[in-house]
């Protein structure tokens, strides 16, 4: 049998006992889950832990995925909950850790914006709460829709829009300070 392309098809195969098929989902989405975790935690090691926990939990509860939403939405929801739990039980993040900072300081930002603007934006982002960071990561970086974010974070769509509006205001204010 060839490699299935559809997520639901892969889920079905895993549920039928083909554990190795889960590897396709891991390869496909580990980067996205890791990205969300880094965005929320600003800590590469903890982000790796969250990524591992997310996939393990997804595997354990795969039978509860009915396909009502996209597999990524379901997976992101688990990742968001795991990362939020890490934020609650461990120190709050302040700055990007060394590994994250190194990759964040790639030329992409430096080429288009002056150094001061980049530093101000990083500082402004680091002042947001982990929940607001998750919203920013999902909406701007992962380009999820408001409806998907609402499902992942267990909020109403209106609430997501209002929070995004407030975050934008806060970021502008922090950057001007």
């Amino acid at each position: 049998m060839g490699i299935p392309t559809d997520d639901m098809e892969i889920v079905q195969r895993v549920l039928e006992g083909d554990t190795e098929a889960f590897g396709t989902l891991v390869q496909r989405y580990s980067g996205k889950v890791y990205g969300l975790a880094v965005g929320m935690l600003h800590d590469a090691e903890r982000a790796e832990d969250v990524t591992q926990e997310t996939f393990l939990r997804a595997y354990e509860h795969l039978d509860s995925f009915r396909g009502a939403s996209a597999f990524t939405t379901w997976l992101y929801r688990i990742a968001y909950n795991r990362a939020a739990e890490h934020c609650r039980r461990q120190r709050p993040f302040g700055r990007l850790d060394e590994r994250c900072r190194t990759v964040a300081e790639e030329p992409a930002a430096a080429e288009r914006y002056d150094a001061e603007t980049v530093v101000r934006m990083r500082r402004a982002l680091s002042r947001l709460s982990s929940d607001d960071r998750a919203l920013v990561t999902l909406f701007y970086e992962e380009e999820c829709t408001v409806s998907e974010i609402a499902q992942m974070m267990n909020l109403s769509q209106a609430n997501v829009k209002v929070r995004l509006h407030r975050i934008r205001g806060r970021l502008r204010q922090y950057m001007e300070e």
Partner: peptide, 20 residues
């Protein structure tokens, strides 16, 4: 600007293997 300053989103090498 938010997208430009975002940390890179690539999973570390070997993470997929560890998960599996």
């Amino acid at each position: 600007l938010i997208r430009a300053v975002a940390p890179r989103k690539e999973a570390p090498v070997g993470l997929d293997t560890r998960i599996m």
